[in-house]
Nucleic acid binder design. Structure first.
Lengths: 227, 227
DNA sequence: TGTACATCAGTGAACGCGCGTTCACTGATGTAC
DNA sequence: TGTACATCAGTGAACGCGCGTTCACTGATGTAC
């Protein structure tokens, strides 16, 4: 499908329209929210009749699933390339929390660039929706990137906490990653702190409070890396 | 309205039906999400015709607003009573982070008891919805409770961070609360860390990971209080 | 290069559905004398 | 205590709407000989 090299003109055309549909879908999600996404409305916006979209997506659910998949993929790609860039200048890595700082700002930039894309993934779930397996696979790739970066941090700070002991025995989610419990702990803290600031910021809960969320974000991160 | 003492039978009946409508509304939100809330569906579930509900709520928006108001009020009440109980045994306060620990567990208990109620307030916002002033007033009461508790914490841990300096000049959101910047900082961290763990937990992002979110919650809190 | 055929994008009509909301009404409940 | 009237909860019909989705179709594009 993505093999545009051997694609026939018709296949290329199909791929283009599919992409165009998704663009309009994102646009609509941005203004009305994900749960109100409507195929008919997208079609109208594209100057087509409603049923025409069924040439490209079997139904509404398939479109939403692809949007979610794209969002996860985009985030994973962003983090991967950030991690690779950080690896090149390895000297600075220790000072930057093993690349965690870079990843954090990559996530934040990615989320602010298109808030609805972040919220579609990490926001309030659509009741009854269950993501297919290939999507959960991408989300665990993201977890692995996090664990890699967390592993490069010089020394753990509060070893032997109750959570550390617990994680030593409950680490299935880390797959076969060799990270010690303190690193697992740090990766989880990293995730929840970033999400804590970011999701409240994107939901507008800091609006009108008058302080700069970027500094709170940085402070939460700093505290994680240099206690 | 809430003055049941001088209320006529008719007024009491009205209040009861209004409450019953809200109960069914919450029930529906729990299964289909807030954005799909339908007056007709509620009426059917209550064995009434759709238009009957318009005797009790002018329209759909008024019902949703009241649900949000109730949720905020309930959270504020929970925190207030938790804070009062903590004040009685003031001796333990210092050891418990000035009551912040108690507040944190109160929030968590409140959220887990009815996840949709928490998510309605702090989850992905309904696009285009703007809360009336009396609701933002309740949310700032909650902030004040937080600031009071954060003020009672023995000593600040990392004074003079960039965020602290920033907050010294951007503290309008704290009203006339006399808390120093380090306390403002701690209150914000408290809020975002609690929300970070809680919202990912409620959204089901820890499901299948195999560790106990309660321990991560506690660890994030501990790190805030004893660095 | 030209013709015959197959593929497939897109249309318009139609389906049944549930939504919010209005309106004129019935019938029960409460109030005033 | 009884009668006359006002209030008001709830009904059923109706409005216009947009939704997802199906179906039989037209017409353009690509393929095979």
């Amino acid at each position: 499908m993505a093999d545009t090299g051997t694609a026939t003109p018709r296949e290329r055309y199909r791929a283009q329209i599919r992409a165009e549909i998704k663009e309009h879908a994102w646009q609509q999600i941005a203004t009305t929210g994900a749960s109100a996404l409507s195929l008919n409305a997208i079609a109208k916006q594209m100057g087509m009749s409603g049923p025409a979209l069924y040439r490209y997506y079997a139904n509404r659910d398939e479109l939403i699933t692809e949007l979610i998949r794209d969002a996860y993929r985009s985030l994973a790609d962003t983090l991967r390339s950030t991690a690779e860039k950080a690896a090149e200048k390895a000297a600075e890595k220790a000072a930057e929390g093993g690349g965690l700082t870079g990843l954090a700002h990559a996530v934040r930039g990615w989320a602010l660039r298109d808030p609805q894309r972040y919220l579609l993934i990490y926001g309030t779930p659509v009741p009854g929706y269950h993501a297919p397996d290939d999507i959960t696979a991408i989300s665990s790739q993201i977890m692995t990137l996090l664990l890699d970066a967390a592993s490069a941090v010089p020394e753990p700070r509060n070893p032997g906490t109750p959570l550390d002991h617990h994680l030593a025995a409950h680490r299935d989610w880390a797959g076969d990653h060799p990270a010690p419990p303190a690193v697992l702990h740090r990766a989880l803290s990293f995730w929840t702190r970033i999400h804590g600031v970011l999701s409240l910021e994107l939901a507008g809960h800091f609006a009108g409070m008058g302080f700069d969320p970027a500094l709170l974000f940085a402070a939460e991160l700093d505290d994680l890396l240099s206690p």
